[in-house]
Protein backbone atom coordinates (compact mmCIF):
# COMPACT_ATOMS: atom_id res chain seq x y z
CA UNK A 1 0.00 0.00 0.00
CA UNK A 2 2.91 2.31 -0.56
CA UNK A 3 4.68 3.64 -3.62
CA UNK A 4 8.44 3.98 -3.48
CA UNK A 5 10.49 5.79 -6.09
CA UNK A 6 13.97 4.34 -6.47
CA UNK A 7 16.11 7.30 -7.47
CA UNK A 8 19.67 8.49 -7.92
CA UNK A 9 20.96 11.81 -9.15
CA UNK A 10 23.64 10.03 -11.14
CA UNK A 11 23.12 7.33 -13.76
CA UNK A 12 24.70 3.91 -13.74
CA UNK A 13 24.67 3.34 -9.98
CA UNK A 14 22.59 0.15 -10.22
CA UNK A 15 19.14 1.50 -9.45
CA UNK A 16 17.29 -0.90 -11.72
CA UNK A 17 19.20 -3.89 -10.34
CA UNK A 18 18.19 -2.92 -6.80
CA UNK A 19 14.59 -2.34 -7.92
CA UNK A 20 14.24 -5.67 -9.76
CA UNK A 21 15.86 -7.74 -7.04
CA UNK A 22 13.96 -6.11 -4.19
CA UNK A 23 10.80 -6.82 -6.14
CA UNK A 24 11.69 -10.50 -6.50
CA UNK A 25 12.70 -10.94 -2.84
CA UNK A 26 9.62 -9.23 -1.43
CA UNK A 27 7.23 -11.00 -3.79
CA UNK A 28 8.75 -14.36 -2.84
CA UNK A 29 7.94 -13.52 0.76
CA UNK A 30 4.32 -13.17 -0.20
CA UNK A 31 4.03 -9.42 -0.57
CA UNK A 32 2.22 -8.25 -3.67
CA UNK A 33 4.75 -6.12 -5.53
CA UNK A 34 4.38 -4.05 -8.69
CA UNK A 35 7.42 -2.71 -10.52
CA UNK A 36 7.23 0.24 -12.89
CA UNK A 37 10.11 1.08 -15.20
CA UNK A 38 9.78 4.87 -15.29
CA UNK A 39 13.22 5.36 -16.83
CA UNK A 40 11.61 6.71 -19.98
CA UNK A 41 14.76 7.23 -22.02
CA UNK A 42 16.73 4.21 -20.85
CA UNK A 43 14.46 1.45 -19.60
CA UNK A 44 16.35 -1.67 -18.48
CA UNK A 45 14.02 -3.34 -16.02
CA UNK A 46 12.58 -5.65 -18.70
CA UNK A 47 16.07 -6.74 -19.74
CA UNK A 48 16.85 -7.71 -16.15
CA UNK A 49 13.96 -10.19 -16.35
CA UNK A 50 14.98 -11.42 -19.80
CA UNK A 51 12.40 -9.45 -21.78
CA UNK A 52 14.03 -7.64 -24.65
CA UNK A 53 10.86 -6.48 -26.35
CA UNK A 54 7.49 -6.40 -24.66
CA UNK A 55 4.32 -4.89 -26.00
CA UNK A 56 2.51 -2.82 -24.98
CA UNK A 57 4.77 -0.78 -22.72
CA UNK A 58 4.68 2.14 -20.31
CA UNK A 59 5.33 4.36 -23.33
CA UNK A 60 2.07 3.14 -24.89
CA UNK A 61 0.22 3.89 -21.66
CA UNK A 62 1.74 7.36 -21.31
CA UNK A 63 0.91 8.17 -24.93
CA UNK A 64 -2.69 7.07 -24.42
CA UNK A 65 -2.41 4.05 -26.71
CA UNK A 66 -2.88 1.36 -24.07
CA UNK A 67 -4.80 0.93 -20.83
CA UNK A 68 -3.25 0.13 -17.45
CA UNK A 69 -4.58 -3.41 -17.69
CA UNK A 70 -2.82 -3.89 -21.04
CA UNK A 71 0.63 -2.84 -19.87
CA UNK A 72 0.86 -4.73 -16.58
CA UNK A 73 2.77 -7.96 -17.06
CA UNK A 74 2.45 -10.72 -14.48
CA UNK A 75 5.84 -12.23 -13.65
CA UNK A 76 4.63 -14.46 -10.80
CA UNK A 77 1.46 -14.70 -8.70
CA UNK A 78 2.74 -11.87 -6.47
CA UNK A 79 5.00 -9.91 -8.82
CA UNK A 80 3.91 -7.76 -11.74
CA UNK A 81 5.74 -5.20 -13.80
CA UNK A 82 5.22 -2.44 -16.30
CA UNK A 83 8.21 -2.34 -18.61
CA UNK A 84 9.34 0.47 -20.88
CA UNK A 85 10.04 0.37 -24.57
CA UNK A 86 13.65 0.16 -25.68
CA UNK A 87 12.67 1.18 -29.21
CA UNK A 88 13.68 4.63 -30.33
CA UNK A 89 10.32 5.44 -31.94
CA UNK A 90 8.62 5.03 -28.55
CA UNK A 91 10.53 8.09 -27.38
CA UNK A 92 9.25 10.13 -30.28
CA UNK A 93 5.68 9.73 -29.12
CA UNK A 94 4.03 12.52 -27.16
CA UNK A 95 4.11 11.23 -23.58
CA UNK A 96 1.87 12.55 -20.83
CA UNK A 97 4.16 12.11 -17.83
CA UNK A 98 1.42 13.02 -15.36
CA UNK A 99 -0.30 9.74 -16.27
CA UNK A 100 2.48 7.96 -14.38
CA UNK A 101 0.89 8.99 -11.06
CA UNK A 102 -2.48 7.63 -12.20
CA UNK A 103 -0.85 4.32 -13.09
CA UNK A 104 1.02 3.91 -9.80
CA UNK A 105 -2.12 4.88 -7.84
CA UNK A 106 -4.03 2.19 -9.69
CA UNK A 107 -1.31 -0.40 -9.04
CA UNK A 108 -1.16 0.60 -5.38
CA UNK A 109 -4.74 -0.56 -4.90
CA UNK A 110 -3.81 -4.15 -5.66
CA UNK A 111 -0.24 -4.16 -4.27
CA UNK A 112 1.51 -4.04 -0.92
CA UNK A 113 4.37 -2.20 -2.57
CA UNK A 114 4.86 -0.34 -5.86
CA UNK A 115 8.51 0.21 -6.77
CA UNK A 116 9.05 2.95 -9.36
CA UNK A 117 12.42 2.76 -11.10
CA UNK A 118 13.17 6.41 -11.76
CA UNK A 119 15.33 7.91 -14.50
CA UNK A 120 18.66 9.36 -13.32
CA UNK A 121 19.08 13.14 -13.17
CA UNK A 122 16.59 15.79 -12.20
CA UNK A 123 14.62 16.35 -15.41
CA UNK A 124 10.86 16.28 -15.86
CA UNK A 125 10.74 12.49 -16.17
CA UNK A 126 12.48 12.12 -12.81
CA UNK A 127 10.11 14.63 -11.23
CA UNK A 128 7.17 12.61 -12.60
CA UNK A 129 8.58 9.43 -11.03
CA UNK A 130 9.02 11.18 -7.66
CA UNK A 131 5.50 12.63 -7.86
CA UNK A 132 4.14 9.16 -8.63
CA UNK A 133 5.40 7.89 -5.24
CA UNK A 134 5.07 8.77 -1.58
CA UNK A 135 8.54 7.66 -0.55
CA UNK A 136 11.95 7.94 -2.19
CA UNK A 137 14.72 5.37 -1.79
CA UNK A 138 18.05 6.81 -2.88
CA UNK A 139 20.59 4.48 -4.48
CA UNK A 140 24.20 5.56 -4.76
CA UNK A 141 27.71 4.22 -5.17
CA UNK A 142 30.08 5.12 -2.33
CA UNK A 143 31.87 7.88 -4.26
CA UNK A 144 31.68 11.68 -4.48
CA UNK A 145 29.71 12.12 -7.76
CA UNK A 146 27.11 9.71 -6.45
CA UNK A 147 26.84 11.56 -3.13
CA UNK A 148 26.37 14.85 -4.99
CA UNK A 149 23.65 13.13 -7.04
CA UNK A 150 21.97 11.84 -3.89
CA UNK A 151 21.98 15.35 -2.42
CA UNK A 152 20.23 16.58 -5.57
CA UNK A 153 17.58 13.88 -5.17
CA UNK A 154 17.04 15.13 -1.62
CA UNK A 155 16.58 18.66 -2.96
CA UNK A 156 14.08 17.41 -5.55
CA UNK A 157 12.17 15.24 -3.06
CA UNK A 158 11.90 18.15 -0.66
CA UNK A 159 10.58 20.44 -3.40
CA UNK A 160 8.01 17.83 -4.38
CA UNK A 161 7.02 17.24 -0.75
CA UNK A 162 8.16 13.62 -0.75
CA UNK A 163 9.79 11.75 2.12
CA UNK A 164 13.19 10.11 1.78
CA UNK A 165 12.96 6.58 3.10
CA UNK A 166 16.72 6.10 3.23
CA UNK A 167 19.81 5.35 1.22
CA UNK A 168 21.22 2.19 -0.36
CA UNK A 169 24.96 2.09 -1.02
CA UNK A 170 25.45 -0.17 -4.03
CA UNK A 171 28.69 -1.71 -5.34
CA UNK A 172 30.55 -1.40 -2.05
CA UNK A 173 33.77 -3.09 -1.00
CA UNK A 174 36.36 -0.83 -2.62
CA UNK A 175 39.38 0.54 -0.77
CA UNK A 176 38.28 4.15 -1.28
CA UNK A 177 34.59 3.69 -0.52
CA UNK A 178 32.92 6.36 1.55
CA UNK A 179 31.89 4.44 4.71
CA UNK A 180 28.17 4.21 5.59
CA UNK A 181 28.55 6.39 8.71
CA UNK A 182 30.07 9.17 6.61
CA UNK A 183 27.28 8.82 4.03
CA UNK A 184 24.74 9.16 6.84
CA UNK A 185 26.50 12.25 8.18
CA UNK A 186 26.67 14.13 4.90
CA UNK A 187 23.24 13.07 3.59
CA UNK A 188 21.48 13.23 6.96
CA UNK A 189 19.66 10.03 5.98
CA UNK A 190 19.82 6.45 7.21
CA UNK A 191 21.79 3.96 5.14
CA UNK A 192 19.28 1.12 4.98
CA UNK A 193 21.66 -1.28 3.35
CA UNK A 194 24.91 -1.79 1.51
CA UNK A 195 25.18 -4.11 -1.48
CA UNK A 196 28.62 -5.44 -2.27
CA UNK A 197 30.11 -5.15 -5.74
CA UNK A 198 29.61 -8.58 -7.22
CA UNK A 199 30.50 -9.91 -10.68
CA UNK A 200 27.52 -12.26 -10.45
CA UNK A 201 25.25 -9.24 -10.77
CA UNK A 202 26.76 -8.65 -14.20
CA UNK A 203 26.35 -12.34 -15.09
CA UNK A 204 22.72 -12.18 -14.07
CA UNK A 205 22.19 -9.24 -16.43
CA UNK A 206 23.38 -11.40 -19.31
CA UNK A 207 21.27 -14.32 -18.11
CA UNK A 208 18.16 -12.13 -17.83
CA UNK A 209 17.46 -13.48 -14.35
CA UNK A 210 17.74 -11.22 -11.28
CA UNK A 211 20.77 -12.15 -9.18
CA UNK A 212 18.68 -13.11 -6.13
CA UNK A 213 17.14 -15.89 -8.25
CA UNK A 214 20.10 -16.77 -10.47
CA UNK A 215 22.73 -16.75 -7.72
CA UNK A 216 20.88 -16.69 -4.39
CA UNK A 217 24.01 -17.25 -2.30
CA UNK A 218 26.06 -14.55 -4.02
CA UNK A 219 27.23 -11.59 -1.88
CA UNK A 220 24.92 -9.14 -3.67
CA UNK A 221 21.91 -11.44 -3.28
CA UNK A 222 22.59 -11.86 0.44
CA UNK A 223 22.89 -8.08 0.84
CA UNK A 224 19.72 -7.39 -1.12
CA UNK A 225 17.74 -9.82 1.04
CA UNK A 226 19.05 -8.02 4.12
CA UNK A 227 18.03 -4.70 2.56
CA UNK A 228 14.58 -6.15 1.89
CA UNK A 229 14.27 -7.03 5.60
CA UNK A 230 15.04 -3.44 6.52
CA UNK A 231 12.56 -2.09 3.97
CA UNK A 232 9.83 -4.34 5.32
CA UNK A 233 10.55 -3.07 8.84
CA UNK A 234 10.30 0.52 7.63
CA UNK A 235 7.35 0.20 5.29
CA UNK A 236 5.08 -2.74 5.61
CA UNK A 237 3.07 -3.61 8.72
CA UNK A 238 3.44 -7.25 9.84
CA UNK A 239 1.23 -9.73 7.96
CA UNK A 240 -1.35 -11.62 9.96
Amino acid sequence: MVRVCIASGKGGVGKSVICANLGVVLSERGYRVSLVDADIEGPTLGLLFGYEHTQPTLHDYLSGNASAGDVVKSLSPTLSAVFGSVQLNALLKELELERLSELTSMLEQSSDLVLVDSPPGLEEDTKAAVRASEEVLVVLNPDIPSVAGALKVRILARREGRHILGVVANRTGGEYDIPPEELEAILEEEVLGTVRDDPLVRSSLVEGIPVVSAHPESPAAVDIRRLADRLVEKLIPPRR
Partner: peptide, 25 residues
Amino acid sequence: FTKPIDAKRFARSVEWLLRNPPRRG
Protein backbone atom coordinates in the same frame (compact mmCIF):
# COMPACT_ATOMS: atom_id res chain seq x y z
CA PHE B 1 31.51 18.79 7.47
CA THR B 2 28.78 20.82 9.08
CA LYS B 3 29.38 22.74 12.30
CA PRO B 4 28.81 22.23 15.15
CA ILE B 5 30.93 19.11 15.30
CA ASP B 6 31.18 16.24 17.72
CA ALA B 7 34.88 16.11 18.60
CA LYS B 8 35.32 12.32 18.64
CA ARG B 9 33.22 11.76 15.55
CA PHE B 10 35.00 14.56 13.71
CA ALA B 11 38.45 13.21 14.58
CA ARG B 12 37.45 9.77 13.26
CA SER B 13 36.19 11.31 10.02
CA VAL B 14 39.37 13.32 9.56
CA GLU B 15 41.41 10.16 10.01
CA TRP B 16 39.29 8.40 7.41
CA LEU B 17 39.94 11.29 4.99
CA LEU B 18 43.67 11.14 5.67
CA ARG B 19 43.76 7.37 5.20
CA ASN B 20 41.37 6.79 2.29
CA PRO B 21 40.19 10.03 0.71
CA PRO B 22 37.08 9.32 -1.38
CA ARG B 23 37.40 9.22 -5.13
CA ARG B 24 35.35 10.68 -7.92
CA GLY B 25 33.93 7.40 -9.23
